[in-house]
Amino acid sequence: MDFTLTLLGTGTSHGVPMIGCDCPVCHSTDPRDRHLRAAAWVHTDDTSVLIDVGPDLREQVIRQHVMRVDAVFLTHTHADHLHGIDDLRGFTRLCRQALPLYARKHDTDFIRNHFDYIFNDHDFKHGWFIPRIELRDLDGQDLIRVGALPIQPIPLVHGHGHAMGYRIGNVAYLTDCSAIPESSYPLLQGLDAMVIDGLRWTPHYTHLCFEQAIAEAKRLQVPKTYLTHLTHDIAYAENQAKLPPGVFLAYDGLDITGTL
């Protein structure tokens, strides 16, 4: 069975173009140089899952005509991956039921504390005008099934903290990481495609740079690798030509077809 991983956003926490920047990339007319905050949509004809709900969520789901969401999976709680959570009310209002949101327990605790208005409305006095979310803790590396989709959590290192990547069938989505723990490599064998953090050419302490991401692709022997979480240092036309065969710059709206 086939599924599609659509990249809703492929940029850093600033997005591209950046506020107040006059650089050539921020003024580029190439649509591949425009990057909303990082997020993804995994979907089949019958199942629809979001990975991350950043501040550009409303624009992203309208652009891609996302009409239904069955579950949300969070990579981590940084603002560029979480602060669109209120816009999930658009989906819960339509379906009239709570939306499962999966994350590490540390992250579900954070969400419950920082967005308490969502979870303290026990009397339903605000009706469907706030998102109705059911927080679900990811228990280690157990596979989660949502409809037709088997979703495998992949623990990652993100600077001094942690993030979660996800594998669906033969495709992995690994944004916001500075390293892959040794214990996660067995979960990433046999991939046909991988979306991985590749901030820019120069190193960064909380993200993989291009050289590091390409090395991970070689280690895992992935035929197609897409670099995401791109900064405004990276012009598509100029930099795609510098990448080795099988490695591509991601861009918003890119569809990657996978097999379950």
Score class of each variant (00 low, 15 high):
residue 39 A to R: 01
residue 83 H to C: 10
residue 223 P to Y: 05
residue 50 L to V: 05
residue 146 V to L: 04
residue 211 E to V: 09
residue 104 R to C: 13
residue 43 H to W: 03
residue 116 D to Q: 05
residue 133 I to L: 14
residue 95 C to N: 07
residue 200 R to H: 14
residue 211 E to C: 04
residue 106 H to V: 12
residue 244 P to H: 06
residue 104 R to N: 13
residue 53 V to Q: 03
residue 233 D to A: 14
residue 212 Q to K: 14
residue 16 V to K: 09
residue 217 A to P: 00
residue 213 A to W: 01
residue 160 H to S: 15
residue 19 I to T: 09
residue 246 G to M: 01
residue 46 D to S: 15
residue 105 K to C: 02
residue 179 A to I: 01
residue 227 L to M: 01
residue 26 C to Y: 10
residue 84 G to W: 08
residue 157 V to Y: 03
residue 15 G to W: 08
residue 139 D to Q: 14
residue 30 D to V: 11
residue 43 H to R: 11
residue 98 A to S: 15
residue 215 A to W: 01
residue 172 A to C: 09
residue 123 D to W: 07
residue 149 L to Q: 10
residue 70 D to A: 07
residue 179 A to G: 06
residue 258 G to Q: 04
residue 260 L to G: 07
residue 169 G to N: 12
residue 225 T to S: 09
residue 219 R to H: 13
residue 190 G to W: 10
residue 148 A to F: 01
residue 115 F to C: 00
residue 225 T to M: 02
residue 84 G to E: 02
residue 154 I to P: 00
residue 208 L to T: 03
residue 26 C to D: 08
residue 34 R to K: 15
residue 215 A to K: 11
residue 125 K to V: 05
residue 221 Q to T: 13
residue 171 V to N: 05
residue 192 D to K: 13
residue 206 T to A: 15
residue 191 L to E: 02
residue 260 L to Q: 13
residue 208 L to S: 03
residue 186 P to Q: 03
residue 58 R to D: 11
residue 41 W to R: 13
residue 219 R to I: 04
residue 116 D to P: 00
residue 60 Q to D: 07
residue 25 V to R: 13
residue 66 V to I: 14
residue 63 R to D: 11
residue 149 L to F: 11
residue 177 C to T: 14
residue 156 L to H: 05
residue 183 S to Q: 12
residue 178 S to H: 09
residue 137 D to H: 02
residue 103 A to Y: 03
residue 37 R to V: 08
residue 144 I to V: 15
residue 224 K to L: 13
residue 12 T to V: 06
residue 111 I to E: 05
